[in-house]
């Protein structure tokens, strides 16, 4: 069978999600996990028929331009304030589904108060937390989630507990709050993990529709540029080091 006989519309089994704007190139570095997570969000929103009732709140960080890529309404928030912004939109438009997209600086450093309190109030929102243990956009500085010993621009000799404190497992904190209904930690470094993350996002969006409270989907991710590795090596490093501190799986799933 010739290739052109296979490449026919009726045989297509995978294509770029329609809600991912094909007219713009994503600005992310080659191999960046953000692209995969964006793709999954676009797929989930389209498949659940939510394109005309979803509002995304983008963070400050590498994903600040998420609004250029996923074809839903967006509000770009000040650094760390996405959960507060999402709270208001969700309360004022209760039929809408509102999600935040936050990095480790946004969620676990400058926006800790907003994140914890939105989750504790049980706002009917989805919080997507991309944890790559580094500040990518500003040039690879330490994040609260940076591993002990990990080198960054502000921990050039490796993170030291005596100087920089411990890596913050904010998702574990979220899981103990009564306002959260679903807290999970996923990754997108293998096809199987991509499928699991998509299922997690779907469940989270369904929870928001069902008014069950706050869902937190952490995606343990790579920042190959910040980590100064190839995308492939970054995935290996993540599996070897990050998952020990940030193990994958559900932390909470209220039925």
């Amino acid at each position: 069978m010739e290739i052109q006989d296979i490449i026919r519309p009726e045989n297509k089994v995978y294509s770029a999600p329609e809600l991912l704007d094909q007219n713009v190139h994503m600005h992310y570095c080659p191999g960046c996990s953000h692209g995969v997570i964006h793709k999954l969000l676009a797929e989930v929103i389209a498949e659940m028929g939510l394109a005309e009732k979803t509002v995304g709140v983008s963070p400050v960080g590498c994903a600040v331009f998420a609004y250029n890529y996923i074809d839903v309404d967006w509000v770009e928030a000040a650094h760390g304030r996405a959960p507060a912004v999402a709270t208001a939109i969700s309360r004022l438009w209760p039929e809408d589904v509102v999600f935040t997209y936050q990095g480790d600086g946004d969620m676990s450093a400058i926006g800790t108060a907003e994140s914890i309190h939105a989750a504790n109030r049980g706002e009917n929102i989805v919080m997507v937390f991309v944890n790559n243990a580094i500040y990518g956009m500003t040039g690879g500085q330490m994040a609260p989630t940076t591993l002990v010993g990990q080198k960054t621009a502000t921990t050039p000799y490796g993170r030291r507990v005596d100087l920089n404190g411990h890596p913050l497992e904010i998702t574990n904190l979220m899981a103990i709050l009564d306002g959260t209904c679903y807290v999970t930690r996923q990754s997108v470094h293998t096809p199987a993990n991509v499928r699991k993350t998509k299922a997690a996002l779907k469940k989270a969006f369904q929870n928001a529709l069902d008014k069950k409270g706050t869902s937190v989907v952490e995606v343990v991710a790579t920042c190959n540029s910040g980590w100064k590795m190839s995308p492939e090596k970054a995935n290996e490093w993540m599996a070897e080091h990050m998952f020990a501190k940030y193990p994958l799986g559900d932390l909470k799933d209220v039925k």
Binding site: V55, V57, V75, A77, A78, R81, A84, V85, A86, T87, A88, I89, R91, L92, W93, A113, E114, H117
Partner: peptide, 22 residues
């Protein structure tokens, strides 16, 4: 009308930002 006691003034004004944006 929605009334919400926020966790801080910072959160409150960002809620206003979100509400106004919508």
């Amino acid at each position: 009308m929605v009334v919400l006691q926020a966790e801080s003034e910072v959160a409150a004004i960002n809620m206003v930002y979100g509400g106004a944006a919508s």
